[in-house]
Nucleic acid binder design. Sequence first.
RNA 1: GGUGGCGUAGCUCAGUCGGUAGAGCAAACGGCUCAUAUCCGUUCGGUCGGGGGUUCAAAUCCCUCCGCCACUACCA
Length: 768
Amino acid sequence: MNKRRLITSALPYVNNIPHLGNLIQVLSADVFARFCRLRGYETLYVCGTDEYGTATETRAREEGITPQELCTRYFEVHDEIYRWFQISFDKFGRTSTPEHTRITQDIFLKLHKNGYITSHTIEQLYSEASDMFLADRYIRGTCPHCGYEDARGDQCEHCGKLLDPADLINPRSLVDNSTPVMRETEHLYIDLPKILPVLQEWMKDAADRAGWSRNAMQMTNAWIRDGLKERGITRDLKWGIPVPLEGYETKVFYVWFDAPIGYISITATLRDDWESWWKNPENVELFQFIGKDNIPFHTVIFPCSLLGSGDNWTMLHHMSATEYLNYESGQFSKSRGVGVFGNDARDTGIPADVWRFYLFYNRPESSDFTFTWKDFQEKTNGELIGNLGNLVNRTLTFITRFYEGRVLPAAITDEFWRPIGAAQAEITTQLENAHLRDAFRKIFELSSYGNRTFQAAEPWKTRDTDVVGTHQLLSNLVHLIRDLAILCSPYIPATSERICGFLGIDLPDWKALGSAEGITHVDSAAILFEKLEDERISELQARFSGTQAERAARDSAAAAAAGEPAAGEAVSAAEAAPAAAPADANAAKAGAAAPPELPLDERFHARVDLRAARIIQVERHPEADKLYIESIDVGEEEPRQIVSGLVPHYSEDELLGKTIVLVSNLKPAKLRGEKSQGMLLAASAKNADGEETVEVLFLDDLGDVVPGSAVRLEGLPEPESFPSKLKVEDFFSMPIRVEGNQVMVGGRPLLCNGKAVRTETVASGNVG
RNA sequence: GGUGGCGUAGCUCAGUCGGUAGAGCAAACGGCUCAUAUCCGUUCGGUCGGGGGUUCAAAUCCCUCCGCCACUACCA
């Protein structure tokens, strides 16, 4: 009677390592799949790496290996991480398989046959030398905006502007160094507007039947309301699925078209009867677990591909779209390497079940959630250990110690079990709806109920006066623990198995809930989890702060600066905060409320994040007389661009290679069209004739100043974080003075590397 | 710029169809000793981002402003 359940989680792009935020989707589907199996549904959970596309092709080219080799390498990284987290895939596959090619081409050909494919001719750069069209990234040339000579075709790394490769001056091919020419090329498009009526027909009952999350509905409706457009589905690449159509032999499908088809093809690599899952809507329900950034692809584009093919596909039933997991005061970021990644979680030595516990206890189900190490510690110690772990431990040790481990049969009493039955029914319903977090919290309420009962009955007092009654109470609790093991097992499977081991049973299925049979004896009991101690948490928090590049820099700096441990500490603490710039609510409130009351020096210190930075490139602003555009190294992964009005005062050579003081958390601005991510500090004074003297604050005389080092006021503690987008007015409202060649704010000298920042020519004046 | 989201207790988050603002943690106090300094109970704590509107009644619906985030755009 029950339908079979087909479960997917979003295919991770193979090119990078998943962080905790990404893992939530995979883990969510895992919990749901484990629950479905325990409830007796015939269940299939598939996932795998999404491998085709420009990103992997380019990366492989850079590393001098084939895309397939690159993908295999990364596939193994993914695979290993998911294994460590005990994800119970029926199949974790990949998209670079013959099955994938076959099914993708089949769907395409049917779309084509049904008139849902159009073609348009566009102009694109072409390499005559290599006889191929060039993807945007394979072209470099001079940026028309900033004059940078090595700008990439899709975006200039120097000024950050998005480019059309056709705009590049003197374009050249990265493949063969030839000069590409414009040539017409024809690309295929999927005609979404034409499929729309079919989509709407399907959506009419699909969405409310399965209760899509609100954000999924909103986004989908907004998409459709704003009008669907034809979307290009081909690219002039090699690493992809060939387009099986005459005249398109040199093209492949664009990765977003084939990626979701991976769900299907990966199933096909697992079993020959894959169509009994994917072309069987009468008997199969499809549950998809994704992040909210992926919603339209799964509710609009992919369904359109399937519907347009005309086959009788198993369509999306339930859509579970999680919100974002943020990290400490910022966001997880793959590109910047901020946060805790799958391999990091493993390297902490904290067991997978503890991570699973925390991620589900706080699953961002209806709004974003912020991961903090402190909260991780509190929830683990308080809830997982203090509540569940303690109930298991106190009950089992009690029954072992005072009853030789014997458990009474038929220990059911209505008073004890009725609330449990009600709670279990609720938990089951919530799990059916994939409300994984609410269900999990309810399970912990049930555990708390056990602790409360234990406490109220005071068996340590009654075991002599009411021998049988007390033994019965404990037996009841043992059966409750058995139930908790069942309920928890989708979330923390290894722990459930251990608990069952204590009880001398195999993990029962869902039907065993509420029964008093099956347990006669407690075999053993052991501590389930180690507490997370303060020192360990502080250590992890420090270790995983900042970007991965900063972590590496910190490690090497720590090694180098062995003689100055204190300074090393200060630097690492300083780097931790500003990298994760976006201020959390607390910091924002504090920042807004505090300044007027604080004296100038403290206010400045709390708000302005000054950094040492090295000028690595200087050039004139093409559209301004006084402005230089500098590229500077602030110890971050990417150099920053700043613009400063120093042309009348300094030549390019006088600036190049120098180390300056940067206001690093200034809100970025555009000066004459050029992005400026910060401001360098310079002192100025007027001489007797009214002429202005300007002196940039150089740090080169202060010894080896590492780019990115903090520049701080003397004698104030390092702030925990800074405002991320300090307004210019704010900054200028806090005057920096030079007095006696010493740079001061509110009477306090400015230090870098433990030495005072000094001027040479400007003995007194203002800095700005 | 467009689209969507978010802003609720010190912290992290719930709050359904408009009907007396909730939980957990933290803090303070009390109790217990089977248990990993664990557990149980009590208390404290909010101008629901600001302002306006609709309504007998607004965290909830409408308008507007502020702040933050994501996606997107030949915006700079």
